[in-house]
Amino acid sequence: MSAFDASLAPLAGGHSGRTFLGEAGGERAVVRLYPPDDPRGAAAPEVDQAALQLVRGLLPVPEVLEVRRADPAAGRPGLLVTSWLPGERGDLVVQRLTAAGDAEALRRLGGHTGAVAGALAGMPMLRPGHFTDPDLGLGRFPDIGLLEWVEARLAHWPEEDRAALGEVVWPALELLDTVRRSCLVHSDLNPKNLLVDPHTLEVTGVLDWEYAHAGHPWTDLGNLLRFDRQPAYVDGVLTAWTSLRGGERDAVLEGARAADLWALVDLAAREGTNPVADRSATLLRAVAATGDLHAWPFGT
């Protein structure tokens, strides 16, 4: 059996229902289960383990305590057991500071989260691709452009809405092409997947690496600023990111919004399955309707 206590309590904040709080060696631990049909194959837990090892010492990530491959024949899920890290979920911290109107604290928090995105953008990869094995070998992404992605994933949208979104995609692609290098991408880097010290506002944990890949340096920044648009927070994020990676702030923000289109389209295609997909669909429709990557349909 495993070294962790089998009595598991679901962790709040996710939509997969596969992450639990357990115990290993008398200490709290986090257990992530991987279904036998995980699209990355039976080695998915080992791929996540390798990603954590890659960034250890550069970003605050948990220690891997146990890893086990899925056994599709036996119907047994894979698992990854990691140490429990202290801190409060970042999205809850953002909500609290926003409700308090504490712009200075939001700016400091943005500085810490932006530094995480900037650090990732500085970890070079040879080319874009998904991780295929525990050695982080790179596969090939499907040979499909962003326009084709829109047509494939949003076929249920009215044709005029897809056409309007296409008018936004062209300049976005041109902007993305101005940066031709690849880096490590977390690909789900938003405050919900960050742990934060509630007093210092420093990031104490970067969690949930299952979507990590090699990709565009603006991708994580776009994710980080997708829904959290409080001016002070955005200012802190951009100040930290550009101090590490360079670039003019407005241009970098435009690039981050452009890079996030890939994920927004994919999420919008799953509208009705979870709140994030629903919000993404609403946001993407606003982008299409206004022709503005920075459109915001949710009020202040």
Results as ranks from 00 to 15, higher is better:
A3Y: 05
S7M: 02
H15A: 13
G17N: 11
T19M: 05
L21V: 07
E23M: 10
A24F: 15
R28A: 14
V30H: 07
L33V: 05
Y34K: 01
P36F: 00
D38L: 00
P39T: 09
D48Y: 00
A51Q: 10
L54C: 08
L65P: 13
V67Y: 02
V67P: 12
R69Y: 01
D71N: 15
P72K: 01
P72E: 03
P72G: 01
A74R: 15
G75D: 08
R76A: 15
L79M: 13
L80K: 12
W84M: 12
L85H: 07
G87P: 01
E88S: 11
E88R: 15
R89M: 14
V93C: 05
V93R: 14
R96C: 03
T98L: 11
A99S: 12
A105K: 09
L106N: 09
L106V: 04
G111L: 06
A115Y: 03
A117P: 03
L120Q: 02
L120K: 06
A121S: 11
A121N: 10
G122N: 04
M123H: 11
M123V: 15
R127F: 02
P128S: 12
P134T: 01
D135C: 03
G139C: 09
P142H: 02
I144Y: 00
I144C: 09
W149A: 05
W149V: 04
E151P: 02
H156V: 10
E159C: 00
E160Q: 12
D161N: 02
D161V: 11
G166C: 07
V169W: 06
W170Q: 13
P171E: 07
L176S: 08
D177V: 03
D177T: 07
T178W: 03
S182I: 01
S182F: 01
C183H: 07
L184A: 05
L184W: 09
V185R: 00
V185W: 00
L189A: 10
N193Y: 04
L194H: 13
L201V: 13
V203F: 12
D208R: 10
W209T: 04
E210L: 02
Y211N: 14
H213N: 11
A214F: 10
G215S: 13
H216C: 13
T219C: 04
T219F: 11
L221T: 05
G222M: 02
R226D: 14
D228P: 00
A232D: 09
D235N: 09
G236M: 09
A240G: 08
A240N: 09
W241E: 06
T242M: 06
R245I: 12
G246T: 04
R249F: 00
R249D: 12
A251T: 15
A256W: 03
R257D: 08
A259S: 12
D260S: 12
L261Q: 09
A268T: 10
A269E: 09
A277T: 09
D278Y: 01
L284N: 08
A286C: 05
A289P: 05
A289F: 04
H294T: 15
A295R: 03
F298R: 07
